[in-house]
Design a protein around this nucleic acid. Structure first.
Length: 823
RNA sequence: GGGCAGGUGGUGGAAUGGUAUACACGCCAGUCUUAGGAACUGGUUCCGCAAGGAGUGAGGGUUCGAGUCCCUCCCUGCCCACCA
């Protein structure tokens, strides 16, 4: 009896050995493979068993790719700026820098116990000045190209986090971090002109090179929210002013019975003198603006508004004079901040019209109705009595009551009416995006300082590149303030500088960057982490990019993944990188839930620490279990009992070494184990490639179950199996490999290839069906002909019983699988 | 309200239109005796003693054959949501 399987000692031994020999650093190989995890925030809680799931998956893939001869880059680092890290520091009364350092040490130690192939010489940390030097450098380039601008527009303000937020940081009008209702607050902000890249961000999603889950692409498409429509001009009578409205339904414009402005619309202040009921209007605007976004949307389902008395707008097609309203159901930030009210064909306008007794005029009828008798009645069209109106008809159809456009289909009408507007200079075709520019400054301490200087004489002046990085100063209090300024503003010696241009007195920008900044380009830094001259060496970048496989959660669909694509395209435009997309293939992992079905969280007290699992069952069993739990992309509840199964499997593998006999290569040929081995090689190889780890593991188990039934196991078969196992359970595989007498690491052996001839077994089980129901299973020689199988089927007692007295009308035969007799 | 992903044993789940429930957990029975989470053997979708029948959220359809394809509907999860 050989010694028992003791994972703890084996694992520690090999982790040390792999670190010593650097067996994973094979970067000079011809073929490259870049496999990347979304790097974590080193939070104070440490890892729970959910975190490593994605890391194990990339590690399995990285190990297989290395065995297949690729030079694999598989790095890890820390996304340590931003509110989570700062929140932790504030709560525990330690400086964020110190807290981050401690937390990283914990995370790293936890990760190392699981036996990953990470090249720790390439570890990066977004809060390291040598890293954020380049984050600042990219910002300066954005500024140089006019893609970073200052704005005073009201922005989202979180009253609890005391900072401005980007649209992407909101979840149903609430702060994504703390859940507070977000207010609108006018504040000087730095904003990135992401909308300039909207079209490219959208278009490149369709590239065939981009192997992303459809769900994520769809989320990005919806987030970007491209809409094609038209702007139409409504003049205001007795003034020089005009209202431009944006609509995607220009075909309905003959049904427009009023015009609505958002409370933020600039025309409201321009027209002040003309508005007869100014006090009432002002009161309404003030009330609307004091509301949070949440109140304006979720809570304020009922439409409200105020008519601008004595103001009239002129319909561009009919010349009709229409009332003008201000109403908060119109969004200030989208389109022109003004819409035409078409109650008959828009649900919101319909609701508003009912409330304020505005006319509802039908100008579109459904296509199907065009031949119906009721059409003349509808053509008259105008629903005078509001009690009759039940619904807005919002589909496309045929136009009526629309002068020369009557009778046209909606799509055609939109084109012709847009052309008419353009000809009359009363409007034009217009594309709008739901996505907004990225509010990029935060009034918090723990972020990259924005490297700009404000000079009374020269205006905004960039910090010269040679003076980067602009380091975060030490500060006594990094608590946020409610002043709209970052805590940095109070550090006079840091704020007051000489203007780099005129040498006069000037002040530093005190806002910092959002937590997403550092993660926008980190994948590039891993390629060349110690480069002092550039963010990445061009040649190295070209050789290594794009990231071949990127693994992480879906929650980053419209933030990190969109921001990073935006920055990457910008870096491409300034020739800092060679490709337009950073991540070729994207794979989302599902969450590991706690055994109670909820998310793992300190709050629920249901967190499982990987350290405990590794200590009890070993890292290999832990890795194997996480891959075996179920489909990789699916959320599944943790079950510690399941780890037992993985451990039992490894015990079986361990025990099998007793049965191994050498020199059995020839004898091993042409037996069923040989067939099964080659089927297993094929299955495991394809499944790892496709992230179907659960079925890869199950096929390894099937193979081992078969070996257990044998008296002897060929060392050739056993060795090949160990290689297949090694990506999942690297430590035990390496140990057994060495015990077999191999001198070099298993990770330098080649990945086995399957032989197509050896996939086939000598016999096949053919199911005999009568009218589609299985009645018997025949064991036949592989590749038997239909006649042979039919003949033996007809000898089978059960089959005969079922066809007794009936005629066989038809037979369908699928070789080695099915014979279906239709009677 | 819109988009996306799903619904299969007691549980996690498997299944290029071709023997539904692989693999694993749990459970049941047995062997051996408790030395390390024992191990091993057998069983485990449901109804039925059996023969047999039913069966992948519901109902229809296509097909020799449907968990898989098509239609109608129900339910669950995630994302977005007054974007004109």
């Amino acid at each position: 009896m050989k010694k028992a399987y003791k994972p703890q000692s084996i694992e520690a031994k090999w982790q040390k050995e792999w670190a010593r020999t650097g067996v994973y650093r094979q970067y000079d190989r011809k073929k490259k493979f870049y496999v990347l995890d979304m790097f974590p925030y080193p939070s104070g809680a440490g890892l729970h068993v959910g975190h490593p799931k994605g890391y194990i998956a990339t590690d399995v893939l990285a190990r297989m790719k290395q065995l297949q001869g690729y030079g694999v880059l598989h790095p890890m680092g820390w996304d340590a700026f931003g509110l989570p890290a700062e929140g932790y520091a504030l709560k525990h009364k330690v400086h964020p820098e110190k807290a981050v350092k401690e937390n990283i040490a914990v995370f790293k130690k936890q990760l190392q116990k699981i036996g990953f192939t990470y090249d720790w010489e390439r570890e990066i940390n977004t809060t390291d000045p040598e890293y954020y030097r380049w984050t600042q450098w990219i910002f300066l380039k954005l500024w140089e190209k006019g893609l970073a601008y200052e704005s005073e527009e009201p922005i989202n303000w979180c009253p609890k986090c005391l900072t401005g937020l980007a649209n992407e940081d909101l979840e149903q009008g609430k702060c994504e971090r703390c859940g507070s209702a977000v207010e609108k607050r006018p504040l000087r902000q730095w904003v990135l002109r992401m909308t300039k890249y909207a079209d490219r961000l959208l278009r490149d999603l369709e590239s065939r090179e981009l192997e992303w889950p459809e769900a994520i692409k769809e989320q990005q498409r919806n987030w970007i929210g491209r809409s094609e429509g038209a702007e139409a001009v409504f003049y205001i009578t007795d003034t020089e002013e005009e209202v431009r409205v944006y609509t995607t339904r220009l075909d309905t414009i003959f049904g427009c019975t009023y015009v609505v402005l958002a409370p933020e619309h600039p025309l409201l202040s321009v027209l002040e003198k003309k508005i007869a009921n100014l006090a009432e209007v002002r009161k309404y605007i003030k009330k609307a603006q004091s509301k949070s976004d949440l109140e304006r949307t979720e809570l304020a389902k009922e439409k409200t508004g105020v008519e601008l008395a004595s103001i009239e707008a002129v319909h561009p097609f009919t010349g009709e004079r229409l009332p003008v309203y201000v109403a908060e159901y119109v969004l200030g930030g989208y389109g022109t901040g003004a819409v035409m009210g078409v109650p008959a064909h828009d649900e919101r306008d319909f609701e508003f019209a009912l409330k304020y007794q505005l006319p509802i005029e039908t100008v579109i009828v459904p296509f199907a109705e065009k031949n119906q008798e009721s059409l003349p009645a509808r053509l008259e069209g105008r629903i005078k009595n509001q009690d009759e109106a039940k619904d807005a008809y919002t589909e496309d159809g045929i136009l009526t009551d629309s002068q020369e456009f009557s009778g046209l289909a909606s799509a055609d009408a939109r084109k012709r009416m847009t052309a008419w507007l353009a000809k009359e200079t009363l409007g034009k075709k217009k594309v709008n995006y739901r996505m907004r520019d990225w509010t990029f400054s935060r009034q918090r301490y723990w972020g990259e300082p924005i490297p700009l200087i404000h000079c009374g004489k020269c205006g905004v002046v960039p910090v010269p590149e040679k003076d980067l990085p602009v380091k975060l100063p030490n500060v006594k209090s990094y608590e946020p303030t409610d002043t709209g300024e970052s805590p940095l503003a109070s550090i006079k010696p840091w704020v007051n500088v000489r203007c780099p241009q005129c040498q006069g007195p000037a002040k530093r920008e005190t806002n910092t960057m959002p937590q997403w900044a550092g993660s926008c380009w980190y994948y590039l830094r891993y390629i060349d982490p110690h480069n002092k001259k550039a963010l990445v060496d061009n040649k190295k970048e070209k050789k290594t990019m794009p990231v071949d496989v990127y693994v992480g959660g879906t929650e980053h669909a419209t933030r990190h993944l969109l921001y990073a694509r935006f920055w990457h395209k910008f870096l491409y435009d300034i020739q800092a990188v060679s490709g337009q997309e950073p991540f070729k293939k994207l794979v989302n992992q599902g969450l590991i839930l706690a055994s109670d079905g909820r998310k793992m969280s300190k709050r629920w007290g249901n967190v499982i620490n990987p350290d405990d699992i590794v200590r009890e069952f070993g890292a290999d069993a832990f890795r194997l279990y996480e891959m075996f739990m179920g489909p990789f992309g699916q959320s599944i509840a943790w079950n510690t009992d399941g780890v037992v199964g993985a451990r039992r499997f490894l015990e079986k593998v361990w025990k099998l070494q007793e049965k191994v006999v050498s020199g059995k290569e020839k004898a091993a040929r042409k037996n069923s184990i040989e067939n099964l081995l080659h089927q297993t090689i094929k299955k495991v190889t394809e499944d790892i490639e496709n992230f179907k780890f659960n079925t890869a593991v199950s096929s390894l188990m099937i193979f081992i179950n078969a070996l257990e039934k044998e008296k002897e196991v060929s060392s050739i078969h056993y060795s090949q199996f160990l290689i297949l196992l090694s990506p999942f359970a690297p430590h035990i595989a390496e140990e057994l490999w060495q015990l077999l007498g191999h001198k070099k690491s298993i990770f330098l052996a080649g990945w086995p290839q399957y032989d197509a001839h050896l996939l086939k077994t000598e016999t096949a089980n053919v199911a005999v069906q009568i009218n589609g129901k299985v009645r018997a299973v025949l064991v036949v020689e592989t590749g038997s002909s239909e006649d042979d199988v039919k003949a033996s089927a007809l000898k089978d007692a059960k089959v005969r019983a079922h066809i007794a007295g009936k005629t066989i009308r038809k037979a369908i035969y699928i070789q080695d699988k099915i014979l279906n007799l239709v009677i």
